[in-house]
Amino acid sequence: MKTYKRSNAPIFWLLFGAGGMMAALFGPIMVFITGIAVPIGLLLPADAMSYPKMLAFAQNFIGKGFLFVAIFLFAWHSAHRIFHSLHDVGIHRGVLAKALTYGVAAVVTVIAAVNLWVIGF
C-alpha cells in the first residue's frame, strides 16, 4: 500500500493565514500613514513620526509588539504565498525557492527583532 508523508505546511500555512488577515486589516492604513499621509503632511501633523515620538512608540510594550508582529507576519505571509506562486510558474519547491521566500522572511524577522531589542524598553 502507498504510504503518505505528513506535510509540515501547517506551520507556514498558519503564518500565511495570520499575516494575510493582518495585512488585510492593517496593511492599507499602515501604508497610508507611514508612506503617504505623514511624508506629505496630509491629515496628520508633519511631526507625527518624529524621532522622539517613534522612539516612544517603539519602546512602548504595545507599540514594539505591534511593529514586530506586523513585520513578522507580513514577511511570513508573503514568503508562503510567493513560495506557492514560484511553484505555480514552474520553479520547483526546492532549496532555491525556500531560500528566496522563507529564507528572506527569516532574515527580515531577525533584523527586526534585533533592532527592536536595541531600541530598548
Binding site: Y4, K5, R6, S7, P10, H84, D88
Partner: peptide, 14 residues
Amino acid sequence: MEVAASTEGVFVCG
C-alpha cells in the same frame, strides 16, 4: 487524515 494531512493532501491547494 493520513492522506489529507500528507504532502499530497490539502496543503498542495493554492
